[in-house]
């Protein structure tokens, strides 16, 4: 910025960029090797480098939950973390929630309860709910309403989302997973 010539400044920046590095992520059960810059956000690595576009970019600031994925089984906002920090971690995205053609009980419940309108927040809603159910944190509809508050739905499909997760919560199959 001290340089008065824009050309020279641009030249300095391009030659001084910190190097990329190779990392390994176990994504939906498969090892993937990636060459990434330190500042590559996990969400952008998933969408732009790995073509896993099921995970959505909503607010990009951790306020809407559309980017929710599971890291080592725990739901997190993939927009607020660097890919390079997760070298060796297991990442589960919406593409890895079903077992082959068999939908996860939460996915099935979302269809049965029509728990979406535009569908943009849905991958994050489902990953969030799957993580909460796996951790045994959902016992009542009030738990669902409170713990799902980090997943915003602009269409306002909340009653059906709560009903869908409640159905999954009550089905032994998902609770045991």
């Amino acid at each position: 910025m001290n340089n008065k010539s824009g050309v020279e400044t641009a030249g300095n920046v391009s030659t001084s960029l910190p190097p990329k590095s190779w990392i390994t992520l176990k994504i939906n059960g498969a090892e993937r090797h990636l060459e990434i810059a330190p500042w590559t956000i996990l969400l952008d690595a998933l969408r732009n480098l790995l073509d896993l576009t099921g995970t959505k970019k909503g607010c990009d600031h951790g306020q809407c939950g559309a980017c929710t994925v599971l890291i080592d089984g725990k739901p997190i906002n993939s927009c607020l973390t660097l890919a390079i920090m997760h070298d060796g971690a297991e990442v589960t995205t919406i593409e890895g929630i079903a077992k082959g053609d068999a939908l996860h009980p939460v996915q099935q419940a979302f269809i049965e309860h029509d728990a979406f309108q535009c569908g943009y927040c849905t991958p994050g809603q489902i990953c969030s709910a799957v993580g909460l159910l796996n951790a045994g944190k959902l016992r009542t509809p009030d738990d669902i309403r409170e713990l799902m508050s980090g997943n915003i739905c602009r269409c306002g499909a909340y009653p059906n989302i709560v009903a869908a997760i409640e159905q999954a919560m009550q089905s032994e199959g998902s609770a045991a997973q």
């Binding site: 725990k74 973390t81 508050s149 980090g150």
Partner: peptide, 9 residues
């Protein structure tokens, strides 16, 4: 405070 996703991080 926050959401469960943020509290996990």
């Amino acid at each position: 405070g926050a959401s469960h996703q943020l509290r996990n991080m």
